[in-house]
Design a protein around this nucleic acid. Structure first.
Lengths: 347, 347
DNA sequence: CAAATTTCCGTGCACGGTAACGGAAAAATA
DNA sequence: TATTTTTCCGTTACCGTGCACGGAAATTTG
């Protein structure tokens, strides 16, 4: 019960509410003696401020910057949108507005730009998907300097100051992927389609997912052969021909996996060539992937909950900014969902 | 922006804020003309009340009754607890307290008792898990009479007045279960362990789950034989002997499923007899089931999110009571999760 | 010691809404 | 028409907190 008010504290301390208010906000103009007395009374009474009254009285509005890659609808980063929106709606009555600051995930300069834009707007908090590690470190250093709290989603970096992190356990998700893929026996050959812009600069999350996958194979299916086919997401024709080529050489392969969200890029090929009886496992609930799941071209999708990640992270940040609460756990690995065409409808 | 205040509305309507307040709360003492005028202005200005100011001014506190079966830790109904607690914490600053009213799920009288207890306390809303259909109908009729909103979780009944429902699509979950069970070939015989207090009074949810399961088998594995073994949850010894008996007769059976949350009751037998290479699928994330999953005695658990169901339902109810919001969807079938030992940790 | 500063703190209005109180206007009654 | 009753509505005192204003007390300065 938050029954104790400032007035109660004031009365018991023998001062006026103005003075108590000064103490509560660490403003100056209070003698050491009074401050001490007031703090003592606050402790004894277990005074907790009424946030809503406070919000009502102080009409200043704050903002939280959300620093995410730009993304067209249907692409991975768009999956975060609904969570952001939801959290934004919840934060609005608290006088907090979310400001999205986008950047091009393939261009460092664009990220730098976004960072300085955020610093300029002096937000009350920042949400970051730290795709660029080094640059993010520099950025968070500045945030710490200014006392601006920040949270990570999707990926996190070595950093000591983040308030909370929400993401998926990438290595484990690769392991899980291998398990799901191989449960349909016999599994002697696997095709791993690597859909990457630049095979020498694959993202960290994808790399650790792949590591989990390979470790599973090594541990439990040491005889299994893993074939890699590299594909450029921007070249549909190339995809076709590369896959055709591969299956001409390896007609026995019946297991396919990918490690990022783009499995939908190969389903066209599979359908066109009427390839049946394959075991196909991919990641992330992009609309195109879900479609493939419904058509059974993809058998299983392993998904995280980007929207929940965003919503949780933002909620924690808001709670911290407004209510001064610290989240119970700092690192939150969200559950991985296994989607098949039988449970996809309820997703 | 909720920038429009009562005063704005009052000014534009040519009345005082007191009158506007009367209209907002459907209190009497307003002429038809004024009421109309005010409502028009409210519509035009898109006035939305500031709930926090409202809560501050009206210091009345309300309660929401949560009508769930009693349950010991580790049992199914306990899974809802964390969600209820969370929602309760969120509701507290809004001057709403949750009051749990338990009942014995096997005794109608106990449920009746609980219902009248709820009616007595005249809550602002009610959360119900309607295990007793007919009795619940009578109860909700009374609630409707008194204008008390109510929501269903877990199961719903035919009823026209509920605000919202959160649950699992039971039939589909049975279908999914069959798919997951049978994906490991060959699957020619399946043991279905039916853990029920009274086989002639099995619960509706379990029944429709079973229906989904059997339909899948009929459609896609018509040659597959389904064996039923009935078990009494209160008789551990009986469980042992029944299963031993069964496997003596049917040593070839390697697929096992159950349809309620009690698969953990048979894992003891499986472990003790060193039964390997089985495919075992069950439901619900009871601690004991999760343990079995970790030990790989159970391979897959299909779970709902009881905590999320409770939290969502209560949140919607609170939103309705406090903010007068109506939930976007009335029937919410939550996603079914597929848990294996590789993703159980992050659950 | 008086005057000028500085330090400390009380007062009062504002935030947006609630609801009781009582008075003016309208309607009913005599 | 005068009086009573009813209907309608404006006024006002809060709710708990933030913050600006200004004054008293304490301290420094001349």
């Amino acid at each position: 019960m938050g029954k104790v008010t400032i007035i109660d504290v004031a009365r018991l301390s023998g001062v006026s509410k103005g003075t108590v208010d000064r103490v509560l906000h660490n403003r100056e103009g209070v003698s050491a003696k009074s401050r001490e007395k007031i703090l003592k009374v606050i402790g004894e009474l277990g005074y907790e401020p009424n946030v809503y009254a406070s919000l009502l009285a102080s009409r200043k509005s704050r903002s939280i910057a959300v620093l995410l890659p730009d993304s067209s609808p249907g692409e991975f980063w768009s999956l975060y949108a609904s969570g952001i929106e939801k959290a934004g709606a919840a934060a609005e009555p608290l006088n907090i507005s979310l400001e999205r600051v986008g950047y091009n995930q393939y261009e460092l300069d664009s990220f730098r730009n976004a960072c300085s834009k955020v610093l300029e707007m002096a937000p009350a908090g920042v949400v970051i998907a730290p795709l660029f590690k080094a640059e993010t470190s520099l950025f968070t250093a500045k945030l710490r300097e200014k006392g601006i709290p920040y949270v990570f989603i999707d990926t996190k970096i070595e950093d000591d100051g983040y308030l909370v992190y929400y993401g998926m356990p990438m290595y484990k998700s690769g392991y899980l992927c291998a398990d799901i893929l191989s449960v349909v026996r016999p599994c002697e050959e696997i095709l791993v389609v690597r859909i990457e812009r630049d095979k020498f600069r694959q993202s960290d999350p994808t790399a650790s997912r792949r590591a989990g996958f390979l470790d599973y194979i090594e541990e439990r299916l040491p005889e299994c052969v893993v074939h890699n086919v590299f594909i450029d997401p921007k070249d549909p024709k190339g995809i076709e021909s590369r896959l055709r080529e591969f299956f001409a050489e390896h007609p026995a392969v019946r297991h396919i996996a990918t490690f990022n969200s783009r499995i939908h890029l190969i389903t066209g090929f599979l359908e066109k060539n009427g390839m049946q009886g394959l075991r196909v496992v991919g990641f992330d609930n992009l609309p195109a992937n879900l479609d493939a799941l419904r058509k059974d071209t993809v058998n299983v999708l392993i998904t995280q909950h980007p929207d929940e990640q965003a919503a949780s992270a933002i909620r924690d940040l808001v709670d911290h900014v407004v209510f001064k609460k610290t989240p119970p756990r700092r690192d939150n690995f969200m559950h991985m969902d296994i989607l098949t065409r039988y449970n996809v409808e309820y997703y």
